[in-house]
Simulated scan of single mutants.
Amino acid sequence: MADGVITSEGETATGAPGLRGLAYPLGDPPTPGEAAEAAPGVLWMRLPLPMALNHINVYAIEDGDGWVIVDTGLQTPDSVEAWEAALTGPLGGRPVTRVVCTHMHPDHIGLAGWLCERFDAPLLMSQLEYITGRMLASDTGPAPEDGVRFFRAAGWAEERLERYRQTYGMFSKGVAPLPAGYRRLSAGDILSIGGQDWSIVVGNGHSPEHVCLWRRSDGVFIAGDQILPRISSNISVWPTEPLADPLADWLRSLDRLGDLLPAETLVLPGHGEPFTGVLPRIEALKRGHAVSLKRLARTLRTPSRAIDVFPSLFARPVGDGLLGMATGEAIAHLNHLEAQGKARRARDADGVDWWTTLETEPEE
């Protein structure tokens, strides 16, 4: 999972269908250091990211005389500068009372420890996200041979495997030290912020126990990366759990959210712009992955490595900077077909997995 530092949210992600049914009621995003009102008592801020996906949205919720912060950005000088401007500007110099992180990817937890220490504020996360984040932040190397075997099996060349060895441990570079303790958030919890109740909704697949916040009283849903408006959340398999089927977890989460959320919900996502139209978006995401899986099954009529199936999943060429994430997402789709009895793998003498379809007449 260490390559998830460049994640999270896939410029290479599959299932980027049309945006019919979506509306963006808040207009242009705020510049770093500024804020826009997303809903009563909720400010929308945007921080820069030094990658193809060049921003993350963070939110501040009024909490009496202070603010609850939801997600924090990556630990970079640009993000710190934007926070300094926001804290003295639109946040009015008022203290941060709590820090909530939706999940453990570095662009979401990177400055959580910095904010918690600065304001003596507690960190709130789900258990699996906190533990996984602490684990990855402390894993600075050397690169495990299990990881090398994993990416060799996917078809990586030896020179790219050597680069993996040399750059392993980048997760910690984007994350300030996390607090030694936290307050657990679990599905169904009610979080009181400024006299308003926010229900904790948990999703899976993009990360282990992703927290979303839902203010039922007016239909505001802080989604993190569980639902994004313009791209599909990155759903990947990593060396820590090579046989996982996170795509099944994510699709089940989409089904639950589709049953739970009203049609008029205002979604405040981790990337892209706040939007309405959550139900058609959920259906489009599910449809996009179904189409990708059909294309993948057709591709596997010819034995293929994970790196060979990129064209059936991604709309653009995969450059070296996105190879780790694209590989993880390709394996997630291959594992999903395998779990459904529609594909199998065979490892050759060089340690490379070759995938083939088990469908005699793949559906067109």
Score class of each variant (00 low, 15 high):
Arg149Val: 11
Gly18Gln: 10
Phe151His: 11
Ala290Ile: 01
Phe171Cys: 01
Pro177Gly: 01
Ser172Gly: 15
Pro122Glu: 03
Leu128Val: 05
Trp214Thr: 01
Pro50Asn: 10
Glu273Thr: 02
Glu364Pro: 03
Thr240Gly: 14
Phe151Glu: 02
Pro229Ala: 03
Glu283Lys: 12
Ala263Asp: 15
Gly219Tyr: 05
Glu34Val: 00
Leu43Trp: 07
Arg287Tyr: 09
Val80Phe: 06
Pro317Arg: 12
Asp78Leu: 14
Ala315Met: 01
Leu185Ala: 13
Arg152Glu: 06
Pro106Tyr: 00
Thr299Tyr: 03
Tyr168Ser: 11
Asp139Asn: 14
Gly341His: 04
His103Trp: 04
Pro246His: 11
Arg345Pro: 01
Glu283Gly: 08
Gly18Pro: 09
Leu53His: 11
Glu158Thr: 13
Pro29Ile: 06
His105Cys: 04
Ile61Glu: 07
Pro48Trp: 15
Ile200Asp: 07
His108Asp: 12
Ile131Gly: 02
Thr302Cys: 04
Gly272Phe: 01
Ala153Val: 03
Leu279Gln: 15
Glu84Leu: 09
Pro77Leu: 12
Arg46Gln: 13
Gly188Phe: 03
Gly113Glu: 08
Gly73Phe: 03
Asp348Trp: 13
Ala290Trp: 04
Ser138Phe: 00
Arg215Trp: 15
Glu145Thr: 10
Glu62Gln: 14
Pro90Cys: 00
Leu257Ile: 05
Pro142Trp: 11
Ala297Arg: 14
Asp218Cys: 11
Gln226Phe: 04
Trp238Gln: 08
Pro29Asn: 05
Leu111Ala: 08
Val220Ser: 08
Met170Phe: 09
Asp259Gly: 13
Glu209Met: 09
Leu124Met: 12
Leu228Gly: 14
Ile109Gly: 01
Tyr24Ile: 03
Arg216Trp: 01
Pro144Gln: 08
Gln196Glu: 14
Gly33Thr: 09
Ala38Leu: 10
Ala349Lys: 07
Leu128Asp: 13
Glu9Cys: 03
Tyr24Lys: 08
Pro95Leu: 01
Tyr59Glu: 08
Leu213Tyr: 01
Glu264Leu: 02
Gly21Trp: 08
Leu26Lys: 01
Trp83Glu: 06
Arg305Val: 11
Ala121His: 07
Ala343His: 09
Ala284Gly: 15
Cys116Lys: 04
Val211His: 00
Leu296Cys: 07
Arg183Ser: 13
Gly319Thr: 00
Phe119Cys: 03
Phe150Pro: 10
Val68Gln: 02
Ala52Ile: 14
Glu283Thr: 13
Asp218Ile: 13
Leu296Ala: 03
Ala263Phe: 08
Leu115Val: 04
Ala86Gly: 08
Gly21Asn: 14
Asp139Gly: 03
Glu363Leu: 09
Thr12Glu: 04
Gly21Ser: 10
